[in-house]
Design a protein around this nucleic acid. Structure first.
Lengths: 332, 332
DNA sequence: TTGTAAGCGTTATCAG
DNA sequence: CTGATAACGCTTACAA
């Protein structure tokens, strides 16, 4: 910057003025400065800048599992919104094996302005508290009772209720739920939705067993195996999976043991990953607008950070039942 | 930091010494400092730190399309390697509509230590030059002739050759290639591999038409439509797609018009996305170790940045033919 | 309209 | 072993 000033024959503060539009500068001098900037290929040092102003134009993005396409799409939405405002995104993909507070510390030291946190196994009240000390935190697809942090969520409960009803309408009498991690809000919501559907159909929700998975494909496979272990006249004829990845795992298991879907067992998921419609059978599921949710989360965070209100309230995104081929009437 | 010093009854430089192990400190004073840090919940200001040292412990990650799971997996590998060394990853997901140099500028201002750049449509020699001014750049699945930047690649040419041979062994006489963007290195490699296979089978490589796509699913659908437009006795019986996403698009097109795969047309892909094995028919493709490649790219970058050599040469990753169900003998 | 100078929170040099 | 103190590159009163 000193170089630029010298090259342009002005003082260093004049350079700053033109770079930030923060002071009146005579047109010719401004031109000289801009010119020097180009000639010297000068790029301001953001570290120094941040040190002075107390804001970083940077947000943290905590995502548990990029291999889950739902998260990847949310991340893309966040990145797009951030890019549109020239704010940087620092990516944290905490591994299950590490202390959740570790990343919080890193992010805090970076002085990121705020954080977007995607629902995932690491989301405990404690780790959220760590993040909250950094600055505003917006949650995606998660909510912690008693904390009321801003959150971008979708109406998972209703989605689960609708897909539950859809399955029940086919006349299944024995069902099982393959749910997500119990500590996750979404898991609870979806489970609640399934139970409402059951109750609405005059069934006792407590009659259907719930297998607790971790939202990964593998656990879908394993839990399907557990759920479908008994003899044909005992075993469930429909599996309500709390996300698509687990539904896919379940589908795989069925395929591997020769169970037909949906004739022998109906399987439904949740998320509507791009691949859901490409499976055979095409997966009946509930669509969540992942990219939009990421975008909204970022906008909401910017607003919290003092951007002019951009209409990004923390409302609920609607959810949409996608009826395809993986659920149907039981064969019997 | 001043507070910590006061609280511990030592000087500010002593605090710095214990925080960085950069000077000898009496055990009791060190303990007092550590204590004060905990009590005051102090986190060092990285901006100030970077200003002083000239390194940021931060790398940039440029990824064109997170919705492509291959990229998402590479990103995950990068994030994992970075996290293991406490280096931060700033994510750039340049949209097609914006100037590639824009992100380079952002990254440069951030003073990131280096950049990992995934192959994508935005990868021009010019934009790479922009990035190179920032610091070391390692490319993933890309190489620019004449620039020789460190790169983490896989042997796509061999993969393409092998899958080409596999298809040809089934006795197809009319084939078509659905390739990637011509400016991408991977596209060229894969195309070269296909041509080698053709030549090895005694066929004239120039006889097979090449449709140029953009590695996205949609272009697979469109190009399959174009490629398969003619009457049955004219149209190709096998489609060599340069990545899985386009293969999936092609699969979709075939399904939509009632063409059976592989009976009416064989389709093969490249990448082996996790979903490839879940499709019906299961997609025959070539596996690239995405996550490992990301990990290696990060390690390589760290090494370039002065980390002790960690054995991350820029060798070629082997590639593995995955023979499944989407390619077979033509029906005729 | 322009320049001077005082920090921002760290690290590193150099006397004690 | 410890503590002043001078940078690091930038912003912003304040003075000219």
């Amino acid at each position: 910057m000193k170089d630029v000033a010298r090259h342009a024959g002005v003082s260093i503060s004049t350079v700053s003025y033109v770079l930030n539009d923060s002071g009146p500068v005579a047109p010719d001098r401004r031109a000289r400065v801009l010119d020097a900037v180009r000639v010297l290929d000068y790029a301001p040092n953001e570290s120094a800048r941040r040190l002075k102003r107390r804001s970083a134009s940077t947000v943290g993005l905590v995502v548990p599992d990029l291999a889950n396409q739902f998260f990847a799409l949310v991340a893309e939405g966040v990145a797009a919104a951030a890019s549109a405002r020239d704010v940087l995104v620092v990516l944290c993909a905490p591994e299950a094996t590490e202390q959740p507070s570790h990343h919080a510390g890193l992010l805090r030291s970076q002085r990121v302005d705020g954080v977007i946190c995607l629902s995932g196994t690491g989301t405990t009240a404690g780790s959220l508290l760590d993040l909250a000390r950094i600055g505003p935190v917006v949650l995606v697809d998660e909510q912690i009772p008693g904390f009321d942090m801003p959150a971008v969520i979708s109406d998972g409960r209703r989605g689960a209720r609708e897909i539950g009803r859809h399955v029940l309408q086919h006349g299944h009498s024995r069902l099982a739920v393959i749910g997500g991690p119990t500590q996750l809000w979404t898991s609870g919501q979806r489970l609640a939705g399934y139970r409402e559907a059951l109750a609405a159909a005059g069934r006792d929700p407590d009659d259907v067993p719930v297998y607790v998975g971790d939202y990964r494909q593998r656990s879908g496979t394993e839990l399907a195996k557990a759920a479908l272990a008994g003899p044909p006249d005992i075993r469930p004829t429909a599996l309500l999976c709390a996300n698509d990845l687990m539904a896919i795992g379940a589908l795989e298991y069925c395929r591997s043991v020769g169970l037909r879907v949906p004739e022998d067992v109906s399987i439904v998921g949740f998320d509507d990953l791009p691949m859901a419609a490409l499976l055979t059978p095409r997966l009946t599921t509930v669509r969540q607008p992942a990219r939009e949710m990421g975008h909204r989360a970022a906008s909401l965070l910017f607003e919290l950070l003092g951007d002019k209100p951009n209409g990004a309230g923390d409302g609920m995104f609607p959810v949409e039942l996608q009826i395809r081929d993986s659920a149907g009437p039981p064969a019997s």
